[in-house]
Simulated assay, not measured.
Amino acid sequence: MQWDDYIGHAQQKEWFATALRNGRLGSTFLFVGPAAIGKQTFATLLAKTLLCVNNPPDQMQPCGHCESCIQVDAKTHPDLLRVEKPADKSVIPVEKLVGPRESRMQEGLCHDIRLRSYYGRRKIAILDDADHLNQEGANCLLKTLEEPPVGSIVILIGTSLQRQLPTIRSRAQAIRFAELEPAEAKQLLQRSEIEADEAAIEQALQLAGGDLSQAAEILNEESQQFRTALAETLQPHPINAIELASLVSDYVNAAGQDATDRRGRMRQVFRTVIEFYRTQMLQTCQTQQASDPAMERILYRMDRCVEAINQVDRNANQQTLVESWSWDLQRGKPLI
């Protein structure tokens, strides 16, 4: 991957190019923006730019064929440290930052970044999943962020400033990444050799809230089969709440044990149901009065889905949320 191959976020690239030309590159950055829009790839390209042994960083054009560039691409560069949340954990383990309890500060990111660089240039650390730093983990990082080794750079990657602890926000320079433009997102998905027409890609991006990994998942066969079954379950009146809850729970559970993936599927489900009822609403407007009971049910159910998305963002219990949402959709009106 080279900058010429990278799609989107041109303003952020130019900001770093200017900082490098002026010799004013900071030491700690916090990349924030929606999931799966290229923040991690941007961080890797920036590291490749800074570690390339042939081309100067201010050119923003790593050669791509020196030993350093090849190692960055292979994720084996000794001066590029990477930390991310394990799939089976809900937070980033402290051990990844400062080593195990019996050998604190003899291993982990905070130790390794202070070692002399292998190529004599600089050490760079990329900490993905910064949303999942707990208070203990953030405290372990404080000294490294406050007194970084000369020439070192730490890049933390998260989804929003609000999800970062104050101790992290106050010590890092925030770089905001917005959702990709529709044309850019389509180009990326098409590059992934996904077999879908433009209309299907647009709908998938809408349902995924701009998350490219979620959009790609929506376009796969499993998701398409689920959406067909979901539409069939939503069609009758009244809805069978038990059947609906079972269908949705099975689909969400199929995402695995990672809480982020499961929450992503839940948002996907609720957005799909909103689109289902939006279509019904348009059809009802053409044939019935806006005050018809059917229209009131549709509007209530759409509002309930919006509320459910907000509950996902507040980390509501999955089983309780799916079951209460299903019964509310079956009822089709608020409790008096």
Rank of each mutant, 00 (worst) to 15 (best):
G64M: 07
G23N: 13
E221T: 05
L25W: 09
R314L: 11
E147Q: 00
Q40I: 11
A138G: 04
P293Y: 15
P57Q: 03
L335Y: 13
R122H: 02
D328A: 11
G26E: 01
I218R: 05
Q319N: 15
A259M: 11
R82M: 07
L234I: 03
Q311S: 10
F276A: 07
Q71I: 07
G99M: 10
Q59A: 14
P93R: 01
R163W: 07
S324N: 05
L329H: 15
L219Y: 04
V322M: 14
F276P: 07
S246H: 13
Q12K: 11
F16D: 08
L141A: 01
K75M: 14
T49F: 02
W15T: 10
G151C: 05
S117Y: 12
E179M: 13
E202D: 15
V252D: 08
E202V: 13
E181N: 06
Q257H: 14
L165E: 11
E184Q: 15
I336D: 14
N253T: 11
Q311P: 03
I155N: 11
F276T: 12
L156C: 08
G158T: 11
R262P: 08
G264K: 02
A172H: 06
E232D: 10
A185R: 10
I274N: 01
L165K: 06
A294G: 00
Q61H: 09
E102F: 13
I7S: 02
R314E: 01
V269L: 08
C305A: 15
A74Q: 10
R121C: 02
F31M: 05
S160V: 04
I168H: 00
R301N: 15
L127S: 08
V252E: 10
F270N: 04
P166C: 03
D112L: 12
Q203P: 03
E198C: 00
A10K: 14
L145Q: 08
Q135C: 03
E67A: 10
T28Y: 00
E102M: 07
V273K: 10
A200L: 06
L321M: 15
Y300M: 00
G264S: 09
V72N: 04
G108I: 06
F29T: 06
L219V: 05
Q235A: 13
L46V: 12
S324L: 12
V312E: 07
D79H: 03
L81K: 06
E146F: 02
Y251G: 07
Q187D: 00
A47M: 09
P56I: 08
A43Y: 10
E179H: 13
T76E: 12
H65N: 06
D88W: 08
R301F: 05
I242H: 12
G8C: 14
G264V: 01
A229W: 02
H237W: 07
Y300N: 05
E107A: 11
G120N: 13
L180R: 01
S246T: 15
V312L: 01
Y277V: 08
A174V: 14
L50E: 09
E202A: 14
E136G: 05
A215S: 01
I175A: 01
Q330P: 09
G210N: 06
A204H: 03
R24F: 10
V150M: 06
G332V: 02
Q203V: 04
G64V: 02
M295A: 01
H132G: 03
